[in-house]
Amino acid sequence: MTAIEVTPPVLARSRARVGDSVFRWWTWLMAALLVVIMLLLVYELIIGAELALNEFGTGFLSGSSWDPVADRYGAWPAIFGTVVSSLLALAVAGPLGLLAAIFLAEIAPRWLESPLSFLIELLASVPSVVYGLWGLYVMVPVMRDPIQTWLSTHLGSLPVFACQPLGIGMMSAVAILSIMILPYGISVSRDVLRAVPNEQREAMLALGATRWETIWRVVVPFARSGIIGGLLLALGRAVGETMAVTMLIGNRAQVSGCLFSPAYTLSSQIANEFTEAVSPMHISALMELGLVLFAITLVLNGAARLLVWRITRGNPVGR
C-alpha cells in the first residue's frame, strides 16, 4: 500500500477540542451547581435547626407546648395540624378529583374535554395568596354562617363539631386546600387513565359491561399505581402549602379534635412567627419545623415519583 502522508489539520482540531471541552466543562459546572445548591439547602437547614435539635432532641416532635417566653418549643401541634389538614383535604379532593378525571378521560367528548381540562388546570395558576384572600373574605363568612352554625346546632354533640364556630380554623383550611390540590390530582389521574390501552376497554365492553362497569372494574385498576402516585403528589402539595393556610387556619398552637377550632401547620407556623421571632432558640425551633416539613415532603414526593414513574413505563400493576 502506498504511504500517503496526510497531515491532519491539527490546529483546527485542537481548537475545536478546546471549545468542546470548555463547553462540556461549563455545562457540567452548571449541573454540579444544582447538586451543590441542594446539598447546601439541607446543610443550611440542619445548621439553622441545630440549636433546637441539640436542646430538645426527639422530644421536639412530641412536645405540645410552644412557649416563646420560656423558650421551650414542641412541634406536635404543627405536625398534627399539617397531617390532619392535608389528609382531610386529600379525602375531599381525592375522590372528587378521580371522578372528574374519569369524566375527562373516559366520558367527555373531545370538544368538551379540552376546554374543561384547561379551566381546571387554571385552578393551579391562581396564586396561593389570592386563594387566601378569597377564602378569608368570601368563604369564611359563608363557612361560619350558615355552614358551621348549622353543623353546630344540629350535630354539635359530635366531638368534631363541639366547639365555637368561628369560620376561621381547621375546616376552612381544609376546604381551601381541597380546592387548591384538586387540579394536581385531576391532571395526573386523567393522563394515566388515558394511557390505559383501548383493548382493555373493548374486552370488558364485549362481555356486556356498561360504560361505568368497564371504567371501574378494568380501566381504573389498570391505572391504579399512577392514580395513587397522583394522590401522593397532591398530598405533598397540601403539606407544603403556606399562604392560604396561614390566612385561614387561625394560627394557634393547639391540638383539638374539633374541626372548627383554630390550629397550626408546620408551614403556617413558620410563616406566621419567623419575622417576629427574637430569641435564637425561637428562630432555630422554627427552622427545625422547616426541617421536619422538608423530611415529610421528601418521603411523600419520593413515593409519588416511584409510582407515577412505574405506570409511565407501562407496568399497570404496582408489583
Binding site: P197, E202, A203, L205, A206, L207, G208, R217, V218, P221
Partner: peptide, 27 residues
C-alpha cells in the same frame, strides 16, 4: 346484545390486574 354475541380480539387482552380465575369470572 353483547351478552349474546361474544368477541375475541386479535391481540390477547386478559385483564392484568385480575387473576386467571377472575378474568374468566369477570363477565
Amino acid at each position: 346484545v353483547r351478552r349474546h354475541v361474544g368477541m375475541v380480539f386479535q391481540k390477547p387482552n386478559p385483564f392484568p390486574t385480575m387473576s386467571i380465575y377472575e378474568n374468566v369470572a369477570a363477565g
